[in-house]
Design a protein around this nucleic acid. Structure first.
Lengths: 220, 220
DNA sequence: ATCATAAATAACTAATTGGTTATTTCAAGA
DNA sequence: TCTTGAAATAACCAATTAGTTATTTATGAT
């Protein structure tokens, strides 16, 4: 019975610990996160955390892998494989932007893992499986666009993928120092809208042929 | 006498502590850095650190401000204000790339400060002074290019500035997870060369008018 | 030479930390 | 209903941590 609140529920306990850990690791990084805080937030206790996850770093590893899995799942769910290439590209740029915006913990988790030189996911089979199709989808999109004469031929899918993420990720991860450096609120609704438009235009200019860009401008 | 090694040298001691702190904060973040390690690396001791800098967070604040100051100084030294706009833009893209590549501690320090919501530099006058001219220089460059018909008119200098940094910074800060996700060595000499070329082309396509781009392609 | 001041050091402390031990409580199968 | 293994808890521990105290030592002005 789904509604019955069990007093003992290992799956639910694990879930609560993972969720609390994600929050705490994202907020303070691996080094700054406290296992007591995670246990308290999960409304469990340290002993359970060590019982189910071994130690702090293994818990972190699972949290990171999960964060990547969620991101990849969400991207796959867009189903851009048969969408018109330019529409697909626009949607992909918007997806990256929205995802980072709505899941800021993804950014801080990835930053933390990079501070530690990716040692936690270095030998993760799960990561490899997730990544394979991800680059493949971009490659497919770029090839379809090129075949139709819309995109430049032979664009490097990895470079484009990194750049699409970069334009969104960098703006958002450095929004706090950015607000000071540029003396403007980078997070106002207006600023966010403008950045998405700028990123979309930038990626189109990066990928599309001059003729395609000309047609796009006439269209608006 | 410059060569005489003084046994007591407050300025030199401060310098050594700052340098050690920069290294340790960059390597482990604010939360992961250890004051004992900083003192040992500086070949000084904790008492001196507390004497000269107050506490760990004030030391971190100075380290961050210094890192920004060095970056801004280096950019200013390029003297792009009277350079031909397209050359200036190319040089600026290359400068960002080279600087992040040769000063990886800048990236991790900035990431750490953003994890802490920029609280350490939030009320820093020094930061404001440094930032003002920085955006101004980009604005000037874009205006000069637009006046010559080389660049799109009315480009937002802040958006361009953020994007130029993003294309380099994101690639490098996420190089460890990137190496796993993309299953290729992102740091080989060849890969680095390709990324700089990609970034340069991307920024030119972002900023230049179609006519300018056409001429550039004919030129090569 | 000597004396006042600041630089330097080492040993210490109180609080916090990741991880463990000892114990109790629940729930399913015999 | 009784037993047994897993779930849950709290109290504990050794190590580490940021920050301090007490003390010694070099230096420059007189």
């Amino acid at each position: 019975m789904a509604l019955k609140k069990q007093l003992r529920d290992p799956e639910e306990t694990k879930r609560r610990i993972m969720s609390a850990a994600k929050y705490e690791f994202a907020k303070n990084g691996l080094g700054g996160a406290r296992v007591d805080v995670i246990a308290a937030r999960a409304k469990s206790n340290k002993r359970m955390m060590y019982h189910y996850f071994g130690d702090k770093e293994r818990l972190f590893t699972l949290v990171i892998e999960d964060a990547y899995a969620d991101f990849r799942e969400a991207e796959k769910a867009l189903e851009l494989d048969h969408e018109e290439p330019i529409t697909a590209l626009r949607k992909l740029v918007a997806f990256n932007w929205d995802y980072f915006l709505k899941n800021p913990e993804f950014i801080t988790l990835v930053n933390s893992e990079n501070l530690h030189r990716a040692k936690h996911i270095k030998n993760s089979k799960r990561m490899l499986e997730m990544s394979r199709n991800f680059v493949g989808r971009m490659k497919n999109l770029l090839e379809r666009g090129a075949k139709l004469g819309l995109f430049h031929a032979n664009m490097d899918a990895t470079q484009v993928q990194i750049s699409v993420a970069a334009l969104a990720y960098h703006y958002l991860t450095n929004r706090h120092t950015g607000t000071i450096v540029f003396e403007r609120d980078l997070m106002s609704p207006q600023a966010l809208k403008e950045r998405l438009e700028f990123n979309t235009l930038t990626v189109l200019r990066m990928v599309c042929t001059p003729q395609t860009l000309q047609k796009l401008e006439q269209g608006t």
